[in-house]
């Protein structure tokens, strides 16, 4: 219930209507959107029960490891109602053609594989919010100071997922496990996304805001 309440409002991409469509414009729009979503996601993390009790250093380490998984999982959940399209924002939906134009066809296809997986499973909002918190708590940072505290956070979130599934999906006793088993593909997809945006950064043609750059550098 706390995670459902903590879930941030949708934000808007607001692509500049005066700039002609191009790969640079699409990537600039996405990087700007990602930067604003990151600010929102850091605020969200503080509402995960137990997260604010971690040391500031461990909160930072988890976010530095897990931020892209959180961004992608949010795009995936928003896209569940559509067919072969990614809802980066309510006003920024990418189809195959736009993905090609932005040079994001491979990455977006990888994200669509996750969408397909969750569609088949019938992912619910309750499951989505817990999985997102689990992805953060389980982001496998190499720099955790108090790994027992992080383990306790993982246990609490894992317990919440199991309780939800026991109550709402008694017909499938393995549903919680199935949910957890989607996380490797999320990790893999996030790694691809990081790699792609690191090479865009090196290219230097797309302006990026400071928080996005800071977190991209944490992964480099």
């Amino acid at each position: 219930s706390l995670l459902l309440v903590a879930e941030p409002e949708a934000i808007f991409a607001m692509p500049d209507p005066t700039v002609p469509e191009s790969d640079i414009k699409a990537l600039t729009t996405l990087c700007d959107l990602a930067d604003r979503e990151l600010v929102v996601n850091i605020g969200w993390a503080k509402h995960i029960p137990g997260f604010p009790s971690l040391s500031l250093a461990d909160q930072m380490s988890l976010l530095q490891s897990g931020w892209m998984e959180i961004l992608i999982l949010r795009v995936v959940f928003r896209s569940l109602a559509l067919e072969d399209k990614l809802v980066y924002a309510e006003d920024y939906i990418m189809d195959e053609e736009q993905s090609k134009l932005a040079g994001l066809l491979d990455l977006n296809n990888a994200i669509l594989q996750l969408v397909k997986k969750y569609k088949t499973m019938g992912l619910e909002k309750e499951e989505f919010v817990v999985l997102k918190a689990i992805a953060l708590a389980n982001s496998d940072s190499m720099h955790i100071e108090d790994s027992e505290a992080v383990q306790r956070l993982q246990d609490v979130l894992h317990g919440a997922l199991q309780d939800y599934e026991t109550t709402h999906h008694p017909e499938d006793p393995r549903r919680a496990g199935k949910m957890i088993m989607t996380l490797p593909l999320l990790r893999q997809t996030a790694a691809r996304a990081i790699q792609h945006f690191c090479s865009i950064k090196q290219d230097g043609r797309v302006p990026m805001h400071k928080l996005f750059l800071e977190l991209l550098e944490a992964k480099a």
């Binding site: 400071k210 928080l211 977190l215 944490a218």
Partner: peptide
């Protein structure tokens, strides 16, 4: 960790 100033600031803000 010094490099991650914005993340640090955002986590320290109370909102």
């Amino acid at each position: 960790k010094e490099k991650h100033k914005i993340l640090h600031q955002l986590l320290q803000n109370s909102t």
